[in-house]
Simulated assay, not measured.
Amino acid sequence: MKNANNTYVFPIATETIKEYEETDVQELGQRYIDLFEFYLQDDIASKFRKMLVIEQYSSPRAAELFNEIFIDMPLNYITILFTVLIQNGKFIHSDASIMALNFYSPLFLLLFKNDSATTEFEQLKSLLTNHIEVFIQNHANPEK
């Protein structure tokens, strides 16, 4: 999920899903932890996210961008990714869109908890790591 500039972004093109077909689900979990860390600690990414949060209430375009970047794109991408993982037998059969919602919602919450609370980053990262580990335990196909 690094782009050409070595910065983390949510993947936009679904073609990148193919890159994950052979990826271990544990490695995939680590990629989301790295992505979370980037969006919290990269100064430009953090300021951009905070600006969109504030401006979404006065600018329809900012609201559109916020929803696209931080809600719709990640959920769509993760749904497609989980669909592939289910089809490849790495995840148990389930509704991929609900799985994506269950997976991404805590990431989204912790991202914004960082902005509004005094919780330390390492504590948030630990919560996220535990969430991803439990999610994988609950959804990984034990036969793979």
Rank of each mutant, 00 (worst) to 15 (best):
E133N: 07
I69G: 03
S59D: 09
E21F: 00
I92V: 15
F66C: 07
M51E: 07
I92G: 12
I80Q: 11
L109F: 01
L110K: 13
N102E: 11
P60A: 06
A96E: 11
E22P: 13
L101S: 14
E143W: 05
Y57V: 03
N6A: 12
N130F: 06
K50H: 10
Q56K: 14
A140Q: 04
I44R: 14
T129Y: 02
I78K: 10
Q30M: 10
Q30K: 05
Q30T: 11
F70S: 02
L124N: 09
V134F: 00
S58N: 14
A62D: 05
L28H: 13
D115G: 04
N102D: 11
D115V: 01
F121G: 08
S116H: 06
V25I: 14
A100C: 02
V53H: 12
P142D: 07
F10P: 04
H139Y: 08
F82N: 10
L85E: 04
Y39A: 02
Y8Q: 03
F38G: 05
E21H: 14
D115S: 05
D42K: 11
A62V: 04
R49F: 02
D34G: 06
T14A: 08
H93Y: 00
F112Q: 14
R61F: 15
F70W: 12
V84P: 00
L85I: 08
I44A: 12
F135I: 10
S59P: 04
S94C: 02
F36H: 10
S97N: 00
I17H: 13
K125D: 01
L101N: 13
A100D: 13
F135R: 07
E37A: 03
M1L: 11
T14E: 06
A96Y: 01
A100P: 08
A117Q: 00
T129P: 02
A63H: 07
R61S: 14
N5H: 12
Y32M: 06
K47I: 09
T14D: 11
T129N: 10
F10E: 09
A13E: 12
L35Q: 13
A62G: 05
K47E: 14
M73F: 09
I71C: 09
V84E: 01
K18E: 15
F36Q: 02
V84R: 15
M73I: 07
A62H: 08
A45V: 08
L75F: 04
S97L: 04
L128M: 13
P106V: 01
E19C: 09
S46I: 04
E37K: 15
T119V: 08
I17Q: 14
S116K: 10
A63E: 04
N138D: 10
F66D: 10
Q30G: 07
A117M: 02
I54S: 11
F91N: 05
T14Y: 10
Y77N: 02
G89H: 06
E122G: 00
Y32Q: 08
A13Y: 02
L40E: 15
I12G: 11
V53E: 03
N6V: 03
E27N: 12
N138F: 03
E27S: 09
